[in-house]
Design a protein around this nucleic acid. Structure first.
Lengths: 230, 230
DNA sequence: TAAATATTTCAATTATCATCGAAATATGGA
DNA sequence: TCCATATTTCGATGATAATTGAAATATTTA
């Protein structure tokens, strides 16, 4: 269970449509400029700035200045998870166009959730790791088994350095589209980065959706026994 | 970019103080009337009705009409979970429990509801049947499992003949004193008759109240693991 | 230095929403 | 039937907060 004093704040901030739209965009884990966010939320930059200041004060987002731009990003994992949990009980968004339909399909298939993999791919990957006995399920977290240690070593993922980070090493994150848990935390992040590095997956610009490359299809099948081809 | 505007709606339902107070009460899993909820949230019944309608439309709560009362309850486990995690951080104003000056204890303990058992006994019996896996909960009805068939046979209740009756075989009935569902319909009636026949319970003249006999206390404990003695 | 762009601040307007009195509707009981 | 109670609907009010034009500030580029 998430214990976070920001939950209440986040909930009240999320309840405003423009802010919810902004936060949804920021769920991709990347930083965006005020103009970008304003355009995506269909409001004027002044309005976006007004909302972003509010969320900055509430420590729901962070800002980084770079030249005349100001890049806004989501504050942390907890905020992302509160957003996702709201997504899990909210009725699905109305799909208005063919373009939206295909985007919806893509985002359900594979996407980033803050800084780790989510969607069908994220859940399947987590299931595979469990099935192969590399991770075991605890209450709110996953633990790496002895077999798992060897496996991640072979994947060139250094668990020791991950554990040194201040953030959670590995915890469960509820997937709104799959309604199941996927792997989050430093380990989830490391896996995402590794798959990007190997060019098994690619980020789709201006979206949280992830594309699986032909090489990725092959790799996922061989390493994880996941067939995303169907 | 798809922005799920429903997230904002769901979040706004939770983040409004009066609604949060109402939802907190409903987290007990029971059903409550509009007046009760209004009193507990310290708002007028019109206002409570206004909020409840909103939450009903958003499928955050359910409603069931019984006479001139309308009982509201929380929609499902998912909503409860989001509420729990939200409220565990920011508990709203404390709820003063209603003090009912004169309560008929007997009628709350056990009574008939039309032609089946209600009150604490009725609810406990239903819960026991569920717990033991003899019945399962459907939308508005209960179904008898394979184990249940054997059990009712051992109780000398003939399900086949019950199903032939034109009336509903088994449906849920909201218990006003327990605010939970109990078993009604032909099956509920058959159980009542069987317990009367075995002299586990007796009707109290000129009342809907039911008296549990010493033999009944023993039988309920042995057969259903229900202790009505406390 | 001047022009263009990004963002914020300010002030005024507008929109939204909770609240509650009054009245309507529905039901139970005498 | 009439009366009491439960709930909803309607309409008005007031408080709060979102929105945006105008202007200020900051930074890059020419």
């Amino acid at each position: 269970m998430i214990v976070n004093s920001n939950v209440a704040k986040v909930a009240s901030l999320v309840s405003e449509p423009s802010r919810a739209a902004i936060l949804t965009v920021l769920l991709d884990g990347r930083y965006h400029t005020v103009n970008e966010l304003a355009h995506m939320a269909r409001i004027k930059p002044q309005t976006a700035s007004f909302h972003l200041k509010k969320m900055l004060d509430a420590q729901v987002v962070t800002a980084e200045k770079q030249g005349r731009h100001r890049y806004y990003g989501i504050m942390n994992q907890e905020v992302a998870q509160v957003m996702e949990s709201f997504l899990s009980i909210a009725p699905p968004a109305e799909i208005k166009s063919l373009h939206h339909a295909s985007e919806d399909k893509a985002i359900r298939l594979a996407r980033t959730c803050y800084d780790h993999l989510a969607g069908n791919l994220g859940v399947q990957l987590t299931e595979s790791l469990k099935r192969k006995g590399f991770i075991t399920e605890e209450n709110d977290t996953f633990s790496v088994t002895e077999d798992g240690k060897a496996f991640f070593h072979s994947m060139q993922i250094d668990l020791t350095s991950l554990k040194k980070k201040r953030r959670s090493f590995s915890h469960k994150c509820l997937d709104w589209s799959e309604r199941r848990h996927h792997l989050a935390g430093a380990l989830g992040n490391a896996i995402l980065e590794k798959l990007l590095e190997r060019n098994w997956i690619q980020r789709i610009p201006k979206s949280r959706a992830i594309k699986i490359t032909p090489r990725g299809m092959k790799g996922l099948k061989e390493t994880f026994a996941i067939d995303m081809d169907r």
